[in-house]
Design a protein around this nucleic acid. Structure first.
Lengths: 141, 141
DNA sequence: GAGACTATGTCAGAATTCTTACATGAGCAA
DNA sequence: TTGCTCATGTAAGAATTCTGACATAGTCTC
């Protein structure tokens, strides 16, 4: 029982580690890391999001996110106002170049996820998602 | 469809990230990181394993593993011969102190995993493990 | 035996991420 | 208004991990 539980944690780690590795390989031609890709991906979904919220969504600290955003700014992939309109949050968004790069990279990354799930039937996929969400919920996510 | 696939990858990352966070909290009293715990845990299962094999089992580079083993050596939790008996591999194993610390920490970590799986029925747990293993296999693990 | 290939250990340096700490702006309650 | 709390941004430094490179030992092929 205890043994089985540990195997689940280990396999979660194994799957995530392998997924990250394959994503790194897929993203190599675009010269972006998995973290950077996750950031761009989230910015497409939530334009104008703050760096702190972006950090939470991608499981990083806001300090690391600010460090990463600086790089993306210098590469012209994202845009941020110098001063907040109100409050302290600086709304961040993709530039046209960032959106273009993301669109191209996303096709390759989607291929990785498709490959990952290629051995699962639709019902098995639902069960997997259900189980993972239950784990997140139980851990207080 | 594409959307659903991305959600699975995201939830895998979310679950792993949250599991790691809870493990860090559980391991805090023992002053070991999750990586160090994983290393000690594997050493209990495979006494005399090489650092390179240990690195592969815990999803790190062998350079990082050697760096970590140095710390564990200084703390007296693991033991390594100065010279290999044959070949280049240096067989590493737990010391008595390392085994004691691991035994105590493992009880708490098992509690985290138990909590993570507390919302799943036995059949759902089997489906989850099955799905994750299929992902690993499809990604070439 | 000679050479190619692989695996292990190690060193040096860079890159990434985290921890700690502080300042600022908004919201809420007294 | 005043004070408290919370969230955001930022800076400085430490810690962790990775990349690139090299030497050594075993294995395999010729």
């Amino acid at each position: 029982m205890s043994n089985q539980q540990q195997q689940v944690g280990y396999v979660v780690k194994q799957a995530q580690s392998l997924l990250r590795l394959r994503m790194e390989e897929a993203l190599h031609p675009y010269a972006v890391t998995v973290s950077q890709y996750s950031c761009l991906h989230r910015l497409l979904r939530d334009p104008g999001i703050s760096a702190a919220a972006l950090a939470r969504a991608t499981f990083m600290t806001r300090q690391s996110m600010n460090s990463m955003l600086q790089q993306l700014l210098e590469r012209g992939l994202v845009d941020r106002p110098a001063r907040p309109e109100s409050g302290r949050a600086l709304p961040t968004a993709l530039t046209a170049a960032g959106a273009d790069l993301l669109a191209a990279a996303q096709a390759d990354v989607d291929g990785v996820e498709e490959r990952m799930l290629s051995g699962l039937s639709p019902s098995e996929l639902i069960s997997l998602t259900h189980g993972l969400n239950a784990c997140v919920k139980a851990l207080g996510g």
